[in-house]
C-alpha cells in the first residue's frame, strides 16, 4: 500500500482522480461534508497538495497559504448578503401582511427599517420584527466571520508548522502527497487543540452559536406570520398545541398517581378489615 501511495508510481492523473473521488465522497455526505467549514478547509489543503508537486517546502507551503486564503474568501462569498436579507424581508412582508398587499407599503416598511424610523401605524409590530431580524442577521454575520477567522488563523499556523517540519525533518516522504496530507492533519489538529483551550476560541464559538439562536428566534415570528396568513400550521401554533398536550400529560400523570394512592389505601383498609371511608 505504501508503495502504491507514491505519486511517482503512476501517472499524475491518478492523484487528481483520487482527489476528485474524495471530494465527491464528501459531497455525497451532504451536510456532514460540504456544509462544514472543516471539510471545506481540508478539501482546500488537499487540492493544494494535489497540484503539480515540486520538492520544495517553501513553494508547497506558499501554495497551501494561497489555497487557505482562497478558502476564506470563498466562504465569505457564500455567506448570505444584506441584499439577500432585504429581498427575503420584502417577500415575508408581502405574505405576512396581505392587507398591505402593495409593494410600495412593503418596501416602505423596509425603508423605515433601514432608516431606523419609529414604529408607527398598523404595521408597527411587523416593523419591530423586521428590525429585530435585521439586527440579528448582522450580529450573526459578524460572529460567523470572526469564527471563520479563528479557523483560518489555525490553518495558517498549521501551515507554518508544516513548513518547519519539512525544513527540519528529513524522514518525511515528500514525494507522497498522502503522507504530507496526513502530516498536515496531525499538525493542524495539534494547533487546533491548543487553540480550542483559549478563551478567545470559546468566545468565538459561543458567539456564533448564540447569534444563530437569536437569528432563528428573530426569523420565526415572521415565518409564523406568513404561515398563519396562508392558513398553514406554524411553529407558533405547534408550540401552543405541544404546551397544551404537556399540561394534559402532567395532569393525567398526577390524577393517575392520586388514584393509585387511593386504591392502595382502599386495599390496605380492606386487607385489615377496616371500614372503607368514602
Amino acid at each position: 500500500m505504501a508503495q502504491d501511495d507514491q505519486r511517482n508510481d503512476g501517472p499524475d492523473a491518478d492523484w487528481q482522480a483520487w482527489f476528485d473521488l474524495w471530494r465527491d465522497g464528501l459531497a455525497a455526505m451532504g451536510g456532514a461534508g460540504r456544509a462544514s467549514p472543516w471539510a471545506a478547509l481540508t478539501e482546500a489543503v488537499w487540492s493544494a497538495l494535489g497540484d503539480e508537486f515540486e520538492n520544495d517546502p517553501a513553494a508547497l507551503t506558499d501554495r497551501l497559504r494561497r489555497q487557505c486564503r482562497q478558502w476564506r474568501h470563498d466562504v465569505r462569498q457564500t455567506m448570505p448578503s444584506s441584499a439577500w436579507l432585504m429581498q427575503t424581508l420584502i417577500t415575508l412582508t408581502h405574505v405576512a401582511t396581505p392587507q398591505a398587499d402593495d409593494s410600495g407599503i412593503a418596501q416602505g416598511l423596509f425603508r423605515d427599517l433601514a432608516g431606523r424610523m419609529p414604529h408607527l401605524g398598523p404595521w408597527q409590530h411587523h416593523q419591530a420584527r423586521l428590525e429585530a431580524l435585521d439586527t440579528a442577521f448582522e450580529n450573526y454575520q459578524q460572529a460567523l466571520a470572526a469564527y471563520l477567522d479563528e479557523i483560518g488563523a489555525i490553518a495558517e499556523r498549521s501551515i507554518d508548522a508544516l513548513e518547519e517540519t519539512l525544513v527540519h525533518d528529513s524522514e518525511i516522504n515528500r514525494a507522497n502527497p498522502r503522507a504530507m496530507y496526513d502530516q498536515w492533519c496531525r499538525l493542524a489538529e495539534q494547533e487546533y487543540e491548543r487553540h480550542i483551550s483559549s478563551d478567545q476560541y470559546a468566545a468565538a464559538l459561543s458567539a456564533v452559536t448564540n447569534s444563530w439562536s437569536e437569528l432563528q428566534l428573530a426569523a420565526q415570528p415572521l415565518i409564523d406570520d406568513c404561515l398563519d396568513a396562508l392558513g398553514m400550521p406554524s411553529r407558533r401554533r405547534l408550540d401552543e398545541t405541544q404546551a397544551a398536550l404537556e399540561r394534559l400529560r402532567r395532569q393525567h400523570k398526577a390524577d393517575t398517581q392520586a388514584l393509585r394512592e387511593r386504591l392502595a389505601a382502599l386495599e390496605s383498609r380492606l386487607h385489615h378489615d377496616d371500614p372503607v371511608d368514602d
Binding site: 474524495w22 465522497g25 464528501l26 461534508g33 462544514s36 472543516w38 471539510a39 481540508t42 489543503v45 498522502r178 496530507y181 496526513d182 492533519c185 496531525r186 493542524a188 489538529e189 487546533y192 480550542i196 464559538l205
Partner: peptide, 13 residues
C-alpha cells in the same frame, strides 16, 4: 468540532 481534522480530514481517506 473537537477533532475536526481527524474526523473530516483523515477518516474517509
Amino acid at each position: 468540532s473537537l477533532k475536526p481534522f481527524q474526523l473530516y480530514g483523515q477518516r474517509y481517506l
